[in-house]
Computed example of a mutant assay.
Amino acid sequence: MHATALLHLLQFASPALPIGAYSYSQGLEAALEAGTVRNADTARAWIARQLREVMAQWEAPVCWRLMRAFQQRDAQAVALWSERFLASRDTAEFRAETLQMGFSLSRLTAELGIADAAVIAMLPAESELALPVAYACAVAALDIPHAEALLAMLFAWAENQVLVCVKSVPLGQVAGQRMLLSLRPELEAAALHAQRLAEEDLSNWAPGLSLLSMRHEVQYSRLYRS
């Protein structure tokens, strides 16, 4: 991987990227409230299961297809997978999360001037711009290899989940880093699975997570927006 592409990837997959990722828990805070996640072992089990059953089955395969569509300048494929991803957001919080972060990332990409007009023209309207679409656009603009970009996306997701656990379980900083390190095999497996998954096998079936997200909308005390 070329050094320039690696540096671009490190920047755009960083938690420091100003798109608001730190303000979302993606249902994890509701799982903490319900007692499903209560210590290091249950936190790791939650993250690993969501990685295997949600991220590897839907989020990552969709992102993979979007990156390929941008590379091939296939605007129809971008529109198709954008529409399908938004349709898969089955709670108000999940939908608001991806739209807010997608909007923020697209604005950042535009303000940094890293994408040419042809790439920008493939984006959906700002009001309907999901995060994976904006991420795939940035990957295309910066000429980042797709396999590395996909793995970085999954790592950034896992890192954010671990940070939620560090703050809210709570876990110590070392315990959090130990957990993140232990997730390496699952992250690698999820990335490979996402690249090989046939279109008819994609699935966002996670009713338990959806119910927790709905509960979070009316949760009395919370730190996160999802």
Rank of each mutant, 00 (worst) to 15 (best):
D74K: 00
R196Y: 04
L211K: 14
A189M: 09
A125P: 05
A190D: 08
A34R: 05
E59A: 06
A16D: 12
S106K: 07
V133G: 01
T91R: 04
M214Q: 15
A136T: 09
V62E: 00
Y22R: 12
G172Q: 03
L108Q: 11
S106H: 13
R49F: 02
W205C: 02
T109N: 03
L187K: 01
L154V: 13
W157N: 04
L181W: 07
A40S: 12
A92R: 05
M101R: 14
A43G: 10
A110H: 08
L192K: 06
L212W: 05
P207D: 15
A156M: 14
Q76I: 10
P124A: 04
S127R: 06
A5F: 09
A194C: 06
A56L: 09
W81G: 06
A158G: 10
A87E: 14
A5N: 08
H2K: 06
H146R: 10
L154K: 04
D143G: 05
L151E: 14
Q50C: 06
L108P: 02
H216L: 03
I19M: 01
L80P: 02
R84M: 05
E83M: 01
V54Q: 07
R184W: 02
A141C: 10
L10W: 07
A140W: 01
A30V: 11
I114V: 15
H193G: 12
P170S: 09
A206I: 08
W205G: 01
P185N: 09
T109E: 00
N160S: 11
G172P: 02
T36I: 15
P132N: 09
A175E: 15
A140D: 15
V218L: 00
A87V: 04
G102E: 11
Q57P: 01
T98L: 01
A40D: 10
Q76G: 13
S14F: 09
A75T: 14
F94R: 06
I144D: 08
A34L: 04
L171E: 12
S210G: 00
L163E: 11
L9H: 06
N160K: 03
L163G: 02
A75G: 10
Q195F: 05
A175M: 02
A140V: 10
W46Y: 12
C63Q: 08
L10N: 09
N204S: 13
H8I: 10
P61Q: 13
E83I: 05
R225N: 02
Q26E: 15
N160T: 15
